[in-house]
Design a protein around this nucleic acid. Structure first.
Lengths: 202, 202
DNA sequence: CGGTCTCTTGACGGAGTTCAAAGCTAGTGG
DNA sequence: CCACTAGCTTTGAACTCCGTCAAGAGACCG
């Protein structure tokens, strides 16, 4: 229980057994079945979430119920996109489970207390935030390189594991392209790899 | 001198006169003329920058010397995109001045010391980082809306001041569209506003 | 007043979207 | 355990928005 969280923190700072116990006591475990909501647009959210097992997704709905995927959160991730909203506030998006998942919840008030009890966590969270900033940055840069094919290629390189686990149309949504376009591009990429040089006559 | 920085910090935390002085002593003022570089791709950068006056821009060069604007930084901003890289590292992009500007530099080692001397700055910087995360988030969401016109409209709503001060082609670059496209869209938007209903015959 | 920088406009081509339909796959319930 | 359905991927054809290339006009600065 909570091994992944403890391990993730352990990558940044060294925890005593006592500190581990304090941390563990601050979280609540919640199990989600596939498709189940963790949070919905407009709710006031009082918690931070760590994905211990499975995969979650943050997304919002645009025109004609178009879904825009904001973030994929496989086990080991914080969601939403860590901590950029610590004040009380209505959620800007929906979060649901793409697989049967286990999520660790921490109330934001308890989170504040935890930081006082185990100050070295400050560093852990600051680093997590920096990682997210960097990732978002790379994503923006990715969007600026124009072609859909390049965007997809970059996504596959960066998140090979996620590609295997989520439906294609959600990746398309994350990249800001249509599922049909992604399907066609994948085909193009595949055939190109098979026939690097093409004979004009047999 | 440094009024804007002190005022910006003052919005988050209350500073004593002594603390103000410590802060002021930690920064160096640098004046930049229009087009002058503050930092170039590949340099190891040892400083954080606060824009006290004028406007700066972070950008990178892609294929065929295409410039991609990453960030606009008017007075009151930190650049680059605050703090996601505090370790020694080569700059990922160029930063130059779009107007005659004044920038406050702080060496990263001195920055670390400053945080120890004036711990309440931790909060200021954490909040600044959160603001950046949120802004980047909104930008990603903006990219997901397909049409160039929508992207531009959203930019104008979010940064009406910047629109007035920087060349259009840089805004186009920031949005990931071509200057020609932006020009055409602006025209469409303008004419549409002038003639909401159109007579088919005179 | 000359050069650079910027914005505009036109014509053409190409990448991506839309709409529609059919084939696949996997989860669910009988 | 099979059958059925709902969700997902693929494919096609027509169309649209955007990019490319090119040229010209206006604005600013030295």
């Amino acid at each position: 229980m909570m091994e992944l969280l403890i391990a993730d923190i352990g990558k940044e700072v060294v925890l005593s057994k006592a500190e581990e116990d304090i941390i563990k006591a601050s979280f609540i475990v919640k199990k989600l079945r596939k498709r189940q909501y963790l949070m919905q647009f407009g709710e006031v959210f009082r918690h931070l979430f760590f994905v211990e097992k499975g995969m979650l997704r943050a997304y919002l709905k645009g025109e004609k119920d178009m879904e825009h995927v904001i973030q994929f959160a496989p086990e080991g991730s914080w969601i939403p996109d860590s901590f950029h909203q610590l004040e009380d506030m209505e959620a800007l998006y929906n979060i649901d489970a793409l697989e049967h998942s286990e999520v660790l919840l921490i109330d934001r008030e308890i989170y504040q207390k935890l930081l006082v009890q185990v100050p070295k966590l400050e560093k852990y969270f600051r680093v997590a935030m920096q990682k997210r900033l960097r990732a978002l940055h790379m994503r923006v840069i990715n969007y600026l390189t124009h072609f859909a094919e390049d965007k997809y290629r970059m996504f596959v390189n960066t998140y090979p594991d996620i590609v295997q686990r989520v439906p294609q149309h959600m990746i398309a949504s994350y990249l800001g392209i249509k599922p049909e376009t992604l399907s066609r591009n994948r085909k193009k990429m595949a055939t190109r790899r098979k026939e690097p040089a093409l004979e004009s006559k047999a």
